[in-house]
Write a protein that binds this DNA or RNA. Structure first.
Length: 212
DNA sequence: ACATTAATTGTGT
DNA sequence: ACACAATTAATGT
């Protein structure tokens, strides 16, 4: 598919034509395969990604390499974190991994800056991105703070199904446990419960979500 | 086809 | 949380 079509097909179509042209002119298209690490903690960003297709999961990691899943990025999204990092020349606080095969277009920071002044729609796009991210982050915090592990897990699973559009999740219990920052045994037990309730079907290395 | 091994998953305490 | 059992997949012979 043409980049042009991908742009007009998504949230980016609210951006004026001139701007879309410049995005195509100055942006660099990159492709990632599922599970590729796109940005790691400590990386310095010199450009901001716009997500054309696919999806990305954003993880936080503490000092002792414990992981925690934060949220997903889908096509039409940009990474508020990298906007933030770029603007203050900070290194990345998060790790971004391709959830599935993903295409994105990298915008050099200089252009991001320049466009904020030149294109009102870009300016509101950037602000809206921060707003969306803040909302989703709140949802994540709610889920961690107020939901019991079983509902958290179910939310995690259906979230994954929604963004990938695929009801099979190819992850071991251990991998899920890492992302939710809990132990494998807990995940195994809860998954077993969910299977008994008919919400999922368990297989080795993968599971199938029936209800979400 | 069978045995061995390693990794994943299940369960009781 | 820990320990161990059971199951499954992969590999070699």
């Amino acid at each position: 598919m043409q980049i042009k079509d991908l742009l007009s097909d998504s949230r980016f179509n609210t951006l004026e034509k001139d701007l879309q042209d410049e995005i195509i002119q100055f942006g660099v298209v990159k492709d990632f395969l599922a599970n590729d690490i796109i940005i790691d903690i400590g990386d310095y960003m010199k450009s901001v990604p716009l997500l054309l297709s696919g999806s990305i999961k954003i993880l936080r990691q503490d000092d002792d390499s414990h992981e925690l899943f934060l949220y997903h990025l889908e096509s039409g999204d940009t990474c508020a974190m990298s906007l933030n990092c770029c603007m203050h020349s900070k290194s990345s606080e998060i790790r971004a991994i391709a959830e599935e095969d993903t295409k994105l277009i990298m915008i050099p920071m200089s252009k991001v800056d320049e466009w904020v002044a030149r294109f009102p729609t870009w300016r509101s796009f950037v602000f809206e991105s921060f707003s969306i991210r803040l909302d989703e982050m709140l949802e994540t915090i709610d889920s961690i703070a107020f939901l019991k592990m079983d509902s958290r897990l179910m939310k995690y699973l259906s979230d994954k199904v929604k963004v990938t559009g695929n009801t099979t999740i190819e992850q071991t219990h251990q991998e899920i446990a890492y992302e939710m920052n809990t132990s494998r045994v807990v995940i195994s037990r809860l998954l077993k419960q969910l299977e008994k309730q008919g919400k999922i079907k368990l297989h080795r290395y993968k599971l199938e979500v029936i209800e979400f």
